[in-house]
Design a protein around this nucleic acid. Structure first.
Ligand SMILES: [Mn+2]
Ligand SMILES: [Mn+2]
Ligand SMILES: [Mn+2]
Ligand SMILES: [Mn+2]
Lengths: 240, 240
DNA sequence: ATTGCTTGGTAGGCATACCTAATAATAGTA
DNA sequence: TACTATTATTAGGTATGCCTACCAAGCAAT
């Protein structure tokens, strides 16, 4: 295998160097080692080292003691990561209504953790909230919702929705419930019935997997695991 | 300074070890080096090393060749990070409508990048969307919005909101605009007026900083930087 | 008890990403 | 031009977090 440019994904730190260089070129016209170091809060030797690695990947044009510039590819990547930063920042400030500085710091960390598709989809969401007339009033409603949550601190009566219909997925471990109805496909109902899960019978939730799926229940003295997708189609009535 | 337990924040990798141990204890009853290694996709020596570091911090109880268990503090941290993972996963699947597997992977990376407040606020948001009747229809609307975006690929007519009132912050670099009115404090209006930014005068946006702030404009042949906070209070009329 | 597989640990190495201290180059100023 | 302050590089060190290769303990079947 001959020597070739490494196409492996950039590290978080490398992405931040590109971002910083882009920013400094924008702001000051040129990027110098000193300014990159100050911007990122690292020492100058750290910058020298990072630049060598980036130069090897042909992302920056760099000869010692000269100004640093970005290659076309480097520019492209820098702009991509910066767009992500901006989008995340906007989400945190505009949708979650968070403080600018906090948003900025978090955005610059999350930007390295999200896949392209996720970034894109979240971008759509931010735009959607910004554009959609019905949605922008949502931002206001959400502020109210936060005020409700923040001072209360207790979990409050969040479990029981006003909805009226309670599903098996909402029963907490240890509690018993009587089955009111089983919705969904007939095949599924049949399968559940064979396992003892029928209308009017009483089940006890033993425990719930960490991500809420599956749910382990006891019915007629025997254990059974129910998928969350099934549980939300099983209407129940809580018993004490 | 005497020897004491390090209270520095855990590394991303350490958080993942705690998460894995918690999960395995939940699933299998016990956590063994072998299973932790398999779960996280690392070698057994890596696990041994990580466990030593976690034991030193009193987060796991660990004596060689015995099962691994979590201390109270370790349990607490594991549950905190797991809750974060779950919440992020729910956001990605339920709000952004992303694939479960993709959501899980991204959640497990983002979970180490968000501050407590951000995590909490995003949690509120997920709950808000889930509970709010008006908001849950938003999920449907958003799906439609995504379908619109995905195939189109072009930027679309995203700039001009139906709103009618256009502000200086929305003018793109290179374009000219006539100032209609300047809102906000009188002191600010005065300061801007002194710089040449007055009602009915024409400005040209030169460029916008990467994060949209500040905006560089040309007025009366001289350059001027305007903060975004100011720009959104300056109503304009776009000129060609 | 002996054997042999699985599990767990140690030793040693590599890559990344930082640091400080010392040295070299450059630029500004007398 | 010569001196000086600033900027940049090199050298050498630390901390993580991973790896492979090898060694040691545990356990089950013979
Ligand atoms: Mn960043
Ligand atoms: Mn960033
Ligand atoms: Mn994780
Ligand atoms: Mn996780």
């Amino acid at each position: 295998m001959t020597k070739q440019i490494c196409r492996k994904k950039l590290s978080a730190s490398q992405e931040d160097y590109l971002e910083a260089i882009w920013m400094l070129i924008w702001k000051e016209g040129v990027a110098r080692v000193r300014d990159i170091a100050d911007w990122l809060g690292v020492s100058m030797p750290s910058v020298s080292g990072a630049l060598k690695a980036l130069a090897q990947r042909k992302l920056v044009e760099y000869s010692p003691h000269k100004y640093v510039s970005l290659s076309d590819r480097g520019m492209e990547l820098a702009e991509k990561i910066l767009a992500r930063h901006k989008m995340l920042r906007k989400f945190l400030t505009d949708v979650l209504n968070l403080d600018e500085q906090l948003a900025d710091g978090n955005a610059c960390r999350i930007e390295h953790a999200v896949d392209e598709i996720v970034s894109q989809r979240l971008g759509y969401f931010v735009e959607f909230v910004a554009q959609n007339a019905g949605a922008s009033q949502l931002a206001e409603e959400f502020k109210g919702f936060c005020r409700q949550q923040d001072p209360a601190k207790g979990d409050g009566p969040s479990g029981a929705k006003e909805n009226g219909s309670l599903t098996l997925a909402e029963i907490k471990p240890g509690q018993k419930a009587k089955i009111v109805s089983i919705n969904g496909s007939a095949a599924r109902s049949q399968r559940l019935a064979k396992a003892g899960v029928r209308r009017d019978c009483v089940v006890r939730v033993i425990r719930m997997a960490p991500l809420g799926d599956p749910i382990e229940i006891e019915v007629d003295g025997s254990k059974l695991a129910v998928r969350k997708a099934e549980a939300i189609d099983i209407e129940v009535e809580k018993l004490e």
